[in-house]
């Protein structure tokens, strides 16, 4: 199978959906002429023109609010926020309006909007450009949260997100844009809420998403050298969440490590650990472990940033704690 990069998979997904449906359009900062800060919309303006690939002012609340209005009127907007951290500027539009309107209007409207935004640290962008804040959005009902780790997943999930009649926050990762992976030619969809087993194993289950999937796979290789076989489960979307996949795996391995790049306190990992213990208390041989970012604003200095972010070493440590 051919291999393409993560950002190329995203471009393919958007281009295919735009060719299929005239109502799909893109808007965001520097996505048109510039081609996207991370090249994720490169070439789309040339194919679709400025009507469907709209460069916007730097006004995140406005971008999301306009996309919402357009969605209410029947279009299928795909707004981009330059980083997840800028979603904070648009928080009122995302949570109070996009996520709640279908409910507070008693189901009178659909909001088919896909907000794309990259998160993640590791490139010394310090405290206002690097955080992984997916837990905030998983906490709020009314918006789906999709967070792919591979080019294959990125394409199939973005296409499903765009076709969904509900709002989706589609979280990419700055350090994944250039990774390569197999992506078949032609169209395919991956349904939201379907986890993927990224590695089979019988001794413990590691639940990880986005860039942490790759850290978990590195950790699993090292654990294998010590005779411990880890299963790596990538939920791929955090809302909806494939609880069955996690429960089935943990019921078999009896041990679980949850890994996330976001802050540890009240993170998504806390919810997963709580539910695993609620459902599988008697099947567990050890407490569920959480690996996450240090509870600090991300520092600039390379060594401090690395110390704050979770990685394969931390996952190995957590796994050894409950397997030996």
């Amino acid at each position: 199978m051919r291999e393409i990069r993560y950002y190329e998979a995203l471009i393919e997904a958007m281009a295919e959906e735009m060719r299929l449906d005239e109502n799909v359009f893109l808007m965001g900062e520097d996505i048109g002429l510039f081609g996207g800060t991370f090249r994720a919309t490169e070439g789309l303006m040339a194919e679709f023109g400025g009507r469907r690939v709209r460069d916007t002012p730097i006004a995140e609340a406005g971008i999301v609010g306009l996309a919402l209005g357009a969605a209410l009127a029947g279009l299928r907007p795909v707004p981009e926020l330059m980083t997840m951290n800028f979603a904070m500027v648009a928080m009122d539009q995302i949570i109070n309006h996009v996520a709640k309107m279908t409910y507070m209007f008693g189901g009178q409207c659909k909001i088919p909007i896909t907000i794309r935004a990259p998160g993640g640290g590791g490139t010394q962008k310090a405290a206002q450009h690097s955080h992984s804040i997916e837990s905030w959005f998983v906490n709020a009902p009314g918006i789906r949260v999709v967070i792919p780790s591979t080019p294959y997943d990125a394409k199939g999930l973005l296409k499903s997100s765009i076709r969904s009649d509900d709002p989706v926050l589609f979280i990419e990762h700055e350090m994944l844009y250039s990774i390569q992976g197999p992506v078949p030619e032609g169209e395919y969809l991956i349904p939201l809420g379907e986890a993927d087993v990224k590695r089979r194993g019988s001794d413990l289950t590691i639940v990880a998403w986005s860039k942490m999937v790759h850290e978990a796979l590195r950790a699993a290789e090292r654990l294998a050298e010590e005779g411990i076989e880890a299963e790596v489960i990538d939920p791929r979307s955090l809302d909806p969440f494939d609880w069955d996949a996690v429960y089935t795996s943990v019921a078999r391995t009896r041990r679980c490590v949850v890994v996330e790049e976001g802050w540890r306190t009240v993170g998504v990992g806390a919810e997963i650990a709580a539910r695993v213990q609620e459902h599988l208390f008697h099947e567990l041989d050890a407490p569920v472990q959480r690996v996450a970012a240090a509870d600090v604003p991300l520092p600039y200095a390379r060594n401090l940033e690395q110390a704050a972010l979770p990685g394969a070493d931390d996952i190995v440590r957590a796994a050894l704690k409950i397997t030996t």
């Binding site: 609340a61 609010g65 919402l68 209005g69 357009a70 209410l72 109070n96 309006h97 009178q108």
Partner: peptide, 28 residues
């Protein structure tokens, strides 16, 4: 809200409806 009559409410956040209005107009 009364979508049948193209009335989209109805937001409790002061100013919150403003970009949505421009977005409806973007669709037009």
């Amino acid at each position: 809200a009364d979508v049948e009559h193209y009335f989209y409410g109805g937001t409790g956040i002061v100013g919150g409806s403003m970009p949505i209005a421009s977005g409806l107009a973007l669709a037009c």
